[in-house]
Simulated scan of single mutants.
Amino acid sequence: MTHCRLSLALVALLCGTAAVMPGIASAQQLCAADLNGNGDAADEGETASCQLTTTGGWTCPIGAALCVADASGTQQCPLGPQYACVTPASGGAATCSPNTCIDTSSNPIQTEPAVDDPGVEADGAVDADGHCLGEIEIFSGRAARCRPAGLLTTFQNCCKDRGKIIKDGMGGSISSMSTKFAIAKGVFTGMKAAYAAFQVGATAGQAASAGANAIIVGLDPTSITISLAINFMIEVLLQGCDSQDMEVGMLKGSGMCHEVGSYCSSKILGICLQKSVGHCCFNTKLGRIIQEQGRPQLQSFNAVGWGTPKQPYCRGFTPEEFQALDFSKMDLSEYYEDIEARAQSQIQIDMKDKIDAYQQTIRQ
Rank of each mutant, 00 (worst) to 15 (best):
A128T: 00
A144I: 03
I234K: 05
D245P: 05
D40Y: 06
A341F: 07
F181H: 04
Q293P: 05
F322D: 02
A208I: 10
E259F: 02
A212G: 09
A212H: 04
E334V: 13
K354I: 11
C280D: 00
D129W: 08
Q346C: 05
E135G: 08
T189H: 08
G130I: 01
T54F: 02
V120N: 01
C280E: 05
S223F: 04
P118F: 09
E320S: 12
G39T: 06
A229N: 03
V200N: 09
K354L: 12
A19R: 05
S49L: 06
S49I: 00
E320F: 06
T17I: 03
A212K: 04
D34M: 09
G91A: 11
E135S: 13
K180G: 01
I109A: 11
I347V: 10
P113A: 13
I215C: 09
Q206E: 15
I109G: 01
Q29G: 04
P108R: 10
G56W: 10
Q274C: 06
I268S: 00
L228C: 02
D353Q: 14
A193V: 05
I268N: 00
Q346Y: 12
C101I: 11
L251A: 04
T100F: 05
M170H: 08
A27L: 11
A94G: 15
A94Q: 15
H258T: 07
C257P: 03
A71K: 13
Q359E: 12
C85A: 12
R162Q: 11
G172M: 13
R342W: 09
P61L: 06
D356E: 14
G23N: 13
C67W: 00
A182Y: 01
F327I: 13
M21P: 03
A12L: 14
A324E: 07
K252E: 11
A149N: 06
C96D: 09
M21E: 14
R315S: 09
V11N: 15
R363H: 08
